[in-house]
Design a protein around this nucleic acid. Sequence first.
DNA 1: ATATGATCGCTAACATGTTAGTTTGTCAGC
DNA 2: GCTGACAAACTAACATGTTAGCGATCATAT
Lengths: 155, 155
Amino acid sequence: MDQHISQRNLPLLLTKARETIISQFRPILKHYGLTEQQWRGLRGLFEEGRGEPCYLCECCEILSPSMTGILKRLGEMGLISREPMQGDKRRVLISLTTKSEQLSREIIPLVQHQYHLIEQAWGPDLISQIYNDIESLIERSNVKVKPVQLPVRST
Amino acid sequence: MDQHISQRNLPLLLTKARETIISQFRPILKHYGLTEQQWRGLRGLFEEGRGEPCYLCECCEILSPSMTGILKRLGEMGLISREPMQGDKRRVLISLTTKSEQLSREIIPLVQHQYHLIEQAWGPDLISQIYNDIESLIERSNVKVKPVQLPVRST
DNA sequence: ATATGATCGCTAACATGTTAGTTTGTCAGC
DNA sequence: GCTGACAAACTAACATGTTAGCGATCATAT
């Protein structure tokens, strides 16, 4: 008896897990009129002080074309400022504004607290185990996987 | 010394994990001109034979408005057919076509094989442990989490 | 029979994901 | 000084995610 296919659908399972978690935080972000990705960007900047778009793309797992729009809207909201980099005219440096720095200081404790409530409800052990597993997975993904050979398409 | 914030960003971590996995399968889907979500839909139908849009939404973790577009495009590609349901004029029944059934039979072994290659490269134990943990998480998410209290917005 | 509320699939509006390709600027080598 | 390879940010085009709400249909109680 072969396994049910959905048991071997890891991307879908990870999507569901992510939705399970993020839905606990969505009300907080909505309360402050931020999308998930906008908050990811602000949070990344809050950690580092400031950074270039391509750095933000990496640490937020957002592709460059998406980041362009996100930064544009954050700019229109007055939540980031941008200064051209001296020495390399291709690059830009993105910073938080006073407004967004204060906003971040307000949101972060709420997020941490909600996080704590999740651990209380679902058990801190499971959560920390998932952390470890996922981090192991991401580390191990440095090992290159052989791609399956694709047949020639008939139709 | 407090933990680095990104260590407590579970949604982002899950996103990265998912990207890590799905990137191994993307070439297969691209080879057949399918998007990730289109394949998720076809696969769901292949498992069940046929089903209503709202069922597909659940099992594919896709929201209804997205599913509308996905089914529309799958229809234009000749990969699904739809018949109105007798007895309830609101509902529709979606089925695979001969074309998409054959397509699925061609893709599924490739996906399974790629999956096997991933396990070979990264170790089957880690993968199966992630399965178990994530499934535990999803089960445990039935336990309702108390939402953090949101302060009144000043600005 | 009728009002009421619920459900299904949908549209609308906007934000983001994804791929391909463009523009401008940097740098190494000649 | 010029050329070619490369890199950063961007645009374009399309697919999907997200929230709100609509219209038709069904179920139920009255």
